[in-house]
Design a protein around this nucleic acid. Structure first.
Lengths: 146, 146
DNA sequence: TTCCAATATATCGTGCGCGATTTAATAGTG
DNA sequence: CACTATTAAATCGCGCACGATATATTGGAA
């Protein structure tokens, strides 16, 4: 009978994703260091650059993060002078996060980052789109399985 | 002149990977809960099931993790009675991690997990292999860019 | 042998990330 | 209106993850 082929992390799709996430973090670290941002902080800034003045919950919905993660993170951004937090006057449960001038100005400094990341992938845009399509399909299947 | 199309996380490949990692974690959580393992702990166990009696550094090399991450994690596995830690007699700098009987026995309980995960992907093995190939290529490119 | 560089873990501090709980405000219902 | 359920943030505890540093062992060179 066949010797049971041992499963290793290298055989697992989930480990590919895990390792890829590590690789992206390593790639972004030096790119974000001049801005003083971590990768999750950068994601929040990207969200705010696309649409300023957002409540915590909406940011969380975009990024798939809980308030327990976002609240301390956003407080750090506030401490860095990049955003302000203020209660929504219409609904005082909500906390609106707004870019400061410094936070808005950072967008231009960050504009070269996506270019740089894309270059590091060694793929053309068609190839990237292909991969992204497959990942989106997989993501849909996994979240449907919930 | 064209209105600058705002970049959002949904436009970014790195965010696909980030979201995918979240999705895998959500998928694994209920599968690993009966075993009392977290996902990173499961990865360490997979490594040990494939080759028992490994020093901390070798486990780290397989998973891309530092001793600062692994040492506390492995101590938790030890506390759970799944592994033992012992100094290598040949080289006392190394700490050999060895499965206990309970740790070895857990492999059979865990055997259905990969099947279950694969089923949740909604992809056949050819499609998975395709995706894994692309991810491997991207991972190579990113780490080469370092 | 003595000293020094390299190696293997461990420790410490900071920042995610999540589940569970808490607090406060709003929306609905009788 | 009073009461209750729902919603939005915040808080707490735990576990990863990494950089920087510490400690101890090994291997080599003078």
């Amino acid at each position: 009978m066949p010797q049971d082929p041992k499963l290793t992390p290298d055989d697992m799709l989930c480990f590919d994703v895990y390792a890829m996430q590590q690789a992206f973090n390593r790639l972004y670290k030096p790119l974000l260091a001049p801005l003083g941002l971590t990768y999750p902080q950068y994601l929040v800034m990207v969200v705010l650059w696309s649409e300023d003045q957002m409540p915590v919950g909406r940011i969380g919905a975009r990024l798939g993060l809980e308030s327990s993660t976002l609240t301390p993170l956003i407080k750090r951004l506030e401490l860095a002078g990049l955003v302000t937090r203020s209660r929504d006057l219409q609904d005082e449960r909500k906390v609106a996060v707004t870019l400061t001038q410094r936070g808005r100005a950072m967008e231009t400094q960050a504009r070269e980052i996506p270019r740089c990341v894309e270059a590091s992938t060694g793929m053309d845009s068609a190839e990237i789109a292909e991969l992204r399509g497959r990942l989106a399909r997989l993501h849909g299947a996994l979240t449907a399985a919930e």
